[in-house]
Design a protein around this nucleic acid. Structure first.
Lengths: 198, 198
DNA sequence: CCTACCGATCGGTAGG
DNA sequence: CCTACCGATCGGTAGG
């Protein structure tokens, strides 16, 4: 339990930290608490990061790696355009639904925690979301240029709408414990994509 | 500055507390910080509430009163059904957009802060959302029984979809600072309501 | 990776 | 509403 022999201490700390932060937020993640749950000394944990802010940034970086692996790489070989756009949303919902992180989508949680704050942690979260949005918008644009969807569709507006549905599903699942939230979101997203496809 | 002569000390503390919590979350709201910003002693603030949890609950209750006044009562006299449903969403977006709370919609923020936690504060937040959803669903049901919208529309699904768009707009505005987020959400919501109306 | 600290701040109490 | 406290915990440091 204490040591997962294949992992470095750094990795072990980060995985525990990501799980705590997913459920309770980065502010609830303290170095002392991490140390206690890992049966380490506080300064032993601290030494790996150098500051609480660097720990926060490392946790986000780790969560990003997991997101990329679970959501993005798993649909890497899908054909660009409408199909890939749908698969990316599907993959995102699936990752939140099957509990890759215990608190649902890691980024949905920290987004609201840092939206009123300033500094490198806030900036890193914003960059990750902007990059995720851009990735989705590129597929929407490709779908448009491949004549897969109606010409009058604005790629940014389309992604905004589908994005909101996915975020809303995560919210309904996590706060209200609605078990059908992801199913509903998937239906609405697929229906929308079907409606605009040529 | 220190005393707004028309307000009781209790009210003055609560208003300050609601504003801090809106921007930074309830966890960042400490009794010591409140005392400092109000030029009061810590125990002077504390005595009004008896515990941090009671302060949290009082802040949420205050935010609920403001929400009811700003969002719900302002469209009280609109005709029940489709019109009132649209006006409720319009009113919600307007309240978030014009900055009734400095951090956007107060409840969107605390929802994610408490979705992984247990206890009376979490429960109060859930109840407020359930009651707000129910209010919206009732208008959707009325619209259905008045034959204002297509028969095949499920009121709960409709509200889920529009709700997600409103929450998504709040997120895009607060985290990504997208100034057109509310405009987009308003367009999408109105378009959806128009599409399903008879 | 550890023990042993530091000042600051947390929620909360005693007593007025 | 105040001063003066309490133990616990925060992020962080010194030194090994």
């Amino acid at each position: 339990m204490k040591n997962n022999s294949k992992l470095t201490t750094y990795e072990t700390i980060l995985i525990k930290a990501v799980n705590i932060a997913s459920l309770e937020g980065l502010e609830c993640l303290s170095i002392g608490r991490l140390a206690k749950e890992l049966n380490m000394s506080k300064s032993g944990v601290f030494a790996h990061f150098g500051s609480k802010q660097e720990l926060n940034l490392a946790v986000i970086e780790k969560a990003k790696d997991i997101f990329i692996k679970e959501v993005i790489l798993s649909v890497e070989k899908e054909p660009a355009g409408l199909i890939k756009l749908g698969k990316l949303f599907d993959s995102w919902l699936s990752y939140a639904e099957r509990g890759v992180f215990p608190g649902g989508c890691f980024f949905a949680g920290v987004a609201y925690e840092y939206d009123g704050k300033k500094g490198p942690v806030h900036d890193k979260i914003v960059k990750i979301f902007e990059s995720w949005l851009l990735r989705l918008e590129k597929q929407a644009s490709t779908a448009l240029s491949l004549n897969q969807i109606n010409k009058n569709i604005n790629p940014e507006d389309l992604v905004f709408e589908l994005f909101a549905l996915a975020m809303g599903a995560n919210w309904a699942r996590q706060l209200l414990k609605r078990k059908d939230a992801f199913k509903k979101a998937r239906q609405l997203i697929n229906q929308k994509l079907k409606n605009i496809s040529i």
